[in-house]
């Protein structure tokens, strides 16, 4: 668990982070969102003491971070950044093994862990272990960056716009993988991004920042339904907000049991989003869809009224 209590950071006269308070629960992925220069990176870097905070307190697992030695603290916290920061003169395997090496793990254990991580991040060991960063594509380099951050199996992971420099397709692929990884590993992650769609797709909780302050925090749907002010609303895409909510809600969460009426012929998987269900309705010119499970068996149905009503808390009428 990470707690920030009215944490402040000044650079000269400028206050980069202004008395922000924030709690990130164990196993939670918390996204810091906001326009460029609003203090996201500064906040992140105060947590692993790359930058020291001027005021307030930061606690990790209940202990103030000033009690820890900065270097030892950072070895216990994973860190991944947009530019990857891979050492260009080290191979992929050596880059990934950096922190275990600093922690003086025996060589055999480091090698084993590196292989495990490469497999986990979809980097075939044979093909990639001995490559140098200059030989990798942007997406591959970022996978190595994430593997390096996870190498010593830290409980906490700090990620600063890790996918910000990638093309949209690669970015979405890596976002999906991070979601799967997080479902398995349950790390405590603070994820900085200026891309609201990325934050909505990944985060359990969003923290919207503006000019060094927190403007609003809450779950993705909470924010979409009730943005605190015009700034948050515009970050969320203005009138697109409804569609964005539909894009992060699964059909399975909103479907109703199959009625006795004939099963609709148009169908949609249970894992699809309401957004995708709407697309099918448009395409098939229908207002009702059968919801299918993984084995292509109908397990429920969803109607247009139900989807539209789902925008409000409590859902709509069948």
């Amino acid at each position: 668990m990470i707690e920030l209590k009215s944490v402040t950071k000044r650079f000269g006269d400028e206050t980069a982070v202004d008395a922000i308070s924030l709690t990130v629960e164990r196993g939670e992925l918390c996204a810091l969102v906001g326009t460029s220069g609003c203090g996201k990176s500064t906040t992140l870097r105060m947590i692993n003491r790359l930058i020291e905070h001027d005021g307030g307190e930061i606690h990790i697992e209940g202990r103030p971070i000033r009690e820890f030695d900065g270097r030892l603290l950072r070895r216990r916290i994973g860190y991944a950044i947009q530019s990857t920061g891979l050492f260009p003169h080290w191979t992929v395997a050596r880059n990934i093994g950096l922190v275990p090496g600093l922690l003086k793990w025996p060589a055999a254990r480091v090698a084993e862990r590196v292989e495990e991580l490469m497999v986990m991040l979809g980097l075939p060991v044979e093909a990639f272990a001995d490559k140098y960063p200059a030989q990798l594509s942007g997406g591959q380099a970022q996978r190595v960056g994430v593997a390096r951050a996870l190498a010593a199996d830290p409980d906490i992971l700090l990620m600063d716009e890790p996918f910000g420099a990638l093309d949209p397709i690669t970015r979405q692929g890596l976002q999906a993988e991070l979601r799967d990884l997080q479902a398995r590993l349950q790390k405590t992650i603070v994820f900085v991004t200026h891309d609201m769609d990325e934050a909505l797709a990944l985060a359990d909780r969003l923290v919207v920042m503006n000019a060094g302050r927190i403007v609003q925090q809450g779950g993705p749907l909470e924010l979409l339904r009730a943005p605190a002010d015009d700034f948050v609303a515009s970050l969320l895409g203005g009138d697109d907000r409804g569609l964005k909510a539909a894009a992060i809600t699964r059909v399975g969460e909103r479907m109703l049991p199959l009625a006795t009426r004939p099963v609709p012929s148009a169908r949609v998987p249970r894992e699809a989003t309401l957004h995708q269900a709407l697309a099918v309705m448009f395409r098939e010119h229908v207002e009702r869809l059968a919801v299918m499970d993984g084995d292509e068996r109908p397990v429920g149905e969803i109607s247009l009224r139900r989807i539209v009503g789902a925008g409000r808390e409590g859902g709509g009428e069948p």
Binding site: R76, S83, G85
Partner: peptide, 15 residues
């Protein structure tokens, strides 16, 4: 030397 590389080096806990 690439500032990103140096930031990562420090961020990983190198002295």
């Amino acid at each position: 030397v690439d500032p990103g590389v140096l930031e990562a080096a420090r961020g990983m806990g190198m002295g």
